[in-house]
Design a protein around this nucleic acid. Structure first.
Length: 273
DNA sequence: CGATTCCCCTGATAGC
DNA sequence: TGCTATCAGGGGAATC
């Protein structure tokens, strides 16, 4: 479940190996993940372009190519983007391969086929799905406590739903939403407009610290997640609630599981009020 | 406006 | 042993 910390870790791990490489060819094995343009145009258009930079916005990876083109990639749940030597065999579920000019390949592997790939002009990023409507980067300067407070108070949704809404804040998914709410001591079903100033301050700090630690520990590897060089992350050992339903909280109480906003949610009924 | 459901897909797991 | 039902989950769309 690549969320902001995982996608950022992929970005950083790919960067030194990809910058300056030229895409010699692209091979599509499952066209369903290519959303724009058609598979034929995609293969034709991407050929010969140089990879100039790798950025990230929320959970989207942005490969800036020559010719003012941008390759927009979303890993969704089980997507993996890795660089390997071209002679290594293709594993199952490899849907897209970019042959590079140094004997390596950039491969997109995705068991569930939920991943998304767009090739668009640099000045037409709005053509790439939800990329255009993303809220601010939670680890960036535009995400402030004032912004968070304003958005929370004007809505009456459950806190969990708010945190998962990519148009409010970019990059938070199920893992980091649950962990941030635990750190803030807030119940996932709290109505956003009811939050007090002190609670919002705690939430703001919790969102920042949880995501920053996620990045520092190179992401959470529960099942499929690996970085661009196939390495697992380390944050899974630091999870306090996610995936721990039925186990005990540090306070001694058993952690509960409940579906909130359509997602499995784990929380401590004592620590999170 | 907000909540819920469906859908895309396949592997793991539980139940029979 | 082998089958089938269920679940997980990002996020957009449709529905209530």
């Amino acid at each position: 479940m690549p969320e902001l910390p995982e996608v950022e870790t992929v970005r950083r791990s790919l960067e030194p190996l990809l910058i300056g490489r030229t895409i010699m060819a692209a091979h599509i094995y499952y066209g369903g993940i290519i959303k724009k343009p058609s598979p034929e145009e995609f293969v034709n258009d991407v050929k010969g372009l140089r990879i100039e930079a790798i950025g990230r916005r929320g959970k989207y990876l942005l490969l800036e190519l020559g010719g003012c083109r941008t390759l927009v990639i979303h890993l969704r749940m089980t997507g993996q983007l890795t660089i390997v030597a071209e002679e290594l065999p293709l594993p199952a579920h490899t849907h897209l391969v970019f042959v590079l000019d140094d004997g390596s390949e950039l491969r997109f592997n995705d068991v569930r086929k939920f991943g998304l790939v767009y090739l668009v002009s640099k000045d037409c990023l709005q053509e790439a799905g939800g990329l255009y409507t993303l809220g601010p980067e939670p680890l960036g300067d535009s995400f402030t406590e004032e912004y968070l407070k304003e958005k929370l108070l004007k809505k009456k949704v459950k806190l969990k739903a708010f945190l998962l809404d990519q148009t409010q804040i970019a990059g938070i998914g199920n893992i980091y939403a649950d962990e941030a709410m635990f750190r803030a001591g807030l119940h996932p079903e709290r109505v956003t407009a009811s939050l007090k100033t002190a609670e919002i301050t705690r939430l703001f700090q919790a969102i920042r610290s949880t995501l920053q630690e996620g990045v520092d520990f190179r992401g959470t590897s529960i099942r499929d997640y690996v970085d661009g060089q196939g390495e697992k992350g380390g944050f899974q050992d630091r999870l306090k609630v996610y995936g721990r339903a039925g186990k005990t909280c540090d306070c001694g109480v058993v952690l509960e599981k409940k579906t909130v906003a359509g997602r499995t949610t784990v929380y401590c009924p004592r620590c999170q009020i």
